[in-house]
Amino acid sequence: MSGQPRCVQVLNGALAEIFETRDDVILLGEDLLDPYGGAFKVSEGLSDRWPERVLTTPISEASLFGVAAGMALRGRRPILEIMFGDFIALGFDQIVNGISKFREMFDDQVAVPLVVRTPMGGRRGYGPTHSQSLEKLLMGVPGIVVVATSECHDLRALLVSAVDDDRPVFLIENKLMYGRPNRRPVGGYLDELRVVETETRYPALTFSGSDFEGGAATIVTYGGMLPIVLEAATELILEHEVFCEVVALSQLLPLDLEPVVESVARTGACVTAEEGGLTGGVGAEIAARVQERSWGDLRRPVQRVAAHDGVIPAARELENQALPGVRDVIDAVAAVAGVRI
């Protein structure tokens, strides 16, 4: 495990590779210049090597989304780093009334090939405005692509694919993920779990502890919740002999439902797990669609695991209580699987 590079290094290397292989890409955002190299160091070393292609900006998120859109309309491929995912709120006019709409409202005469990279997630004590998982707010914006990275996905491939994509892509990163190893499956296994990966542009990973011979439930998750869900799934196997499949999506919008439907056909139950708030969350959309598509397979209603609807407090214990943990996932599986744990 120690041989695997940390996620931040993989993303940093992918950015360097993109700069080496494309001349139409510019990285812009706040505090990107070396020696600082961005708040989470993803752009470290880039401005030293490519000073003309790393543009450090004023604190102007409301406009920066539009600046990136304008560049994309004119044939560039900007990568916009938003320092904290919470700050996408400042850019919503540009996201809703520009970036997502230009292509269709201008009758497919234009494309907006930009990438927004931004870290979401809590568990670092940053408090209410620097800890949120706001990707659910993007789920209601047709015309954009929302991709969640995780520590088990091929992060290099996700970033390269996002830059190659002619659509606007919001690449959701995670603050805790950066410092962790990019734990890729080897030979179809991650530790003791079998893993299959879809051959789509933004793949989904499906994990099984029972060689895809069915199980008690399918847990659908993404991003920073994946390691928590994998821990819960492992505990369910080891402590309770309850086997689940875990589907780790990367493409959230348009929602990549097929691997979920396929897994639910094997397990007959579904739990969604996300770090964002419950109401109007990603899990709500997944639950609605799974119940439309897989009603005949479901033994019980879909259960959602999510953060509570409220602020994410700064104090460690309060934050832990607000955000979903291993216990919440286990309880939800027990509920849909009808087992006592």
Binding site: A62, S63, L64, F65, G66, V67, A68, A69, G70, M71, A72, L73, R74, G75, R76, P78, D93, Q94, N97, G98, K101, F102, M105, F106, D107, Q109, V110
Partner: peptide, 26 residues
């Protein structure tokens, strides 16, 4: 909401200036 060649318009006040800034940068 018009687009033809090098002409663009959009209907939200203030929304167009950031995009124009990005166009000028490109």
């Amino acid at each position: 909401h018009l687009h033809r060649g090098n002409f663009y318009s959009n209907g939200v006040q203030g929304s167009i200036v950031p995009v124009s800034t990005g166009i000028a940068l490109a």
